[in-house]
Amino acid sequence: MKKILFFGILVATTINIQAQKFFTKDGTIRFFSNAKLEKIEATNNKASIVYDPASGALEIATLVKGFIFENAFMGEHFNETYMESDKFPKANFKGKLENPSAVNVAVAGTYKAKVVGDLTMHGVTKPVSTDATFVVGGGKIDTDAKFSIKASDFDVKIPGDKSDNISNVIEITTKSSLTELKK
């Protein structure tokens, strides 16, 4: 009986650990366009991110209008001409760690893992993948990832006369500090 009870507790504890998800509502997404004549950068600090260490599932959601540009004029063009953010207000990523066990949230340390999934923006969904860093420690997980997309893949048209100002290859950097979701 004692053994069964012990086993029961063990199973319950394990399930409990596995059920813990990590999240933030203040994730950072930065994009950078490095064209011949101009460098354009914008940052969005309101990405919501959920990471489930058990399954490796990773989801990111953000509002396109949340990108802040140094130059107001660029921001207007980004929203109106290129991203059409009234029509497509959100951008999101749904994916997972290729190998969920690559990150051990129970042991502090720095882990590298490949993240694969689908990025949806401007009404188009495309597969993306990148190597991400996960730093576990102090009750949180700091994430860091960088990858490039092509604007043309997402049906974002850059007119020929703007090709020296806006690059078709856009570098995206994400950073976040995830804390345990207590529910």
Partner: peptide, 17 residues
């Protein structure tokens, strides 16, 4: 007002900037 990010798990958020 920028819009709304609904989320059943995390709770929903209205974003302004």
């Amino acid at each position: 007002c920028n819009g709304f990010l609904p989320d059943d798990l995390l709770g929903s958020e209205v974003l302004l900037n």
